[in-house]
Computed example of a mutant assay.
Amino acid sequence: MQNNTRVCFNRYLSEVATANRLDKVTGEAFNYSPVAQQSFYEMVSDKADFLKRLNQITVSSQLGQKIGLGVSRPIASRTNTDEAERQTRYVGELDGDSYHCQQTNYDTHQKYSLMDSWAHLEDFSTIYASQIARQVARDRLMIGWHGESAAAETDIVANPLLQDVNEGWIAKVRKKQPHRFMGYGSDGNPTADTYKVGEGSGYGSLDALVFDMTTNLLDAWHQDTDDLVVMVGREIWVAHGMALLANSTLPTERNALSTWFASKTVAGLPCIMPPFLPSRAVIVTSYDNLSIYHQAGTLRRTIIDNPKRDRVEEYLSENEAYVVEDFGKFAGVRNGAILLPDGAGGWA
């Protein structure tokens, strides 16, 4: 590490110590202070716009019942009080579901040579911290969409999308209420069912598929809420746009194409392509129905300057859980169950 890099790095360590109410950072593990913890969450969310829209909730216990934030159901009623007492109704989800915050390690290192290239920049501290925050954001999205289990020993080669780090949102619904997903059986295992989306098929358009999902998979009181969003994978996004483009010579189709690219709506709902969502998945839910729970006091960090390897090593960990607040407000189609036109008159 060059001398000017050392000055910048020591200044950064001093900033970290101050933020966490430490005398200095010594290479030993420390817990984030509540203020520093919140700043870290905000920095991570800034690296992925989709994360900003979700719930980031701090919980006190490692195990517990999910909070049900944003969940709502009808409560209006009338009772003949001459015959019976009025009864309250719970606005949360009736089918209770527990969460389990699993320790997740985000361990990284920065080579001296890379840090030397930042030393002349005034925002050295921001650049250094952003390197970690950016990958934490990416990892959380991968886990949320692809996570299947929390293995005692993870294998990045066998599970490159972090399938074994934690149980994500899709896995939660598939295992707890598989009837919310097209393409899964009652046991939560994939079926051989496929759904053709395109001209001349059972679903002539993505709009038809989404309308069917909304009508038949969501609880009745969620079907017309104003916060639903259609989330699609990359292949579905491209196929829908290309289908509109292919027929854009017709005035009505030109209007449809214009509407799609201007407002990106499907079946009257906003449509987005979240990072790392499986390429042929389609999900209808709301942003506030997806949460990441963080157990208070478990965000820990160790910073070690290791000259033996010419690098600075970071050991960061936290107990986290991925939660769907209301299964009745989540509808999906299994990735791989949707067939699209192959351009040769068939489906693939």
Rank of each mutant, 00 (worst) to 15 (best):
S113Q: 09
L114R: 09
L114Q: 11
M115A: 08
S117K: 12
S117G: 12
S117M: 15
W118N: 01
A119L: 01
A119R: 00
A119C: 04
A119H: 04
H120K: 05
H120Y: 14
E122A: 07
E122W: 02
D123Q: 04
D123P: 02
D123H: 03
F124Y: 08
S125Q: 09
S125N: 09
S125T: 12
S125H: 11
T126F: 10
T126D: 08
T126G: 06
I127C: 04
I127L: 15
I127R: 15
Y128G: 08
A129D: 09
A129W: 00
A129Q: 07
S130Q: 10
Q131V: 01
I132Y: 12
I132E: 12
I132W: 10
I132M: 11
A133T: 03
R134L: 11
R134P: 00
Q135P: 00
Q135M: 08
Q135A: 06
V136P: 01
V136D: 00
A137F: 01
R138T: 13
R138Y: 04
R138W: 06
D139K: 11
R140S: 03
R140L: 15
L141T: 04
L141G: 03
L141H: 05
M142A: 05
M142Q: 11
I143N: 03
I143M: 07
H146F: 12
G147M: 05
E148I: 05
S149D: 13
S149G: 01
A150M: 11
A150E: 03
A151F: 10
A151S: 14
A151H: 08
A152H: 04
E153R: 08
T154E: 01
D155E: 06
I156R: 06
I156A: 12
A158W: 09
A158I: 07
A158H: 05
P160T: 06
P160E: 07
P160I: 04
L161P: 00
L161D: 13
L161T: 06
L162M: 07
L162Q: 02
Q163R: 11
Q163C: 02
V165R: 12
N166L: 10
E167G: 08
E167K: 15
G168F: 04
G168P: 07
G168R: 01
W169H: 09
I170G: 02
I170W: 10
I170P: 00
I170F: 14
A171R: 14
K172F: 10
V173R: 05
V173C: 05
R174V: 15
R174Y: 04
K175N: 15
K176W: 08
Q177F: 15
Q177P: 00
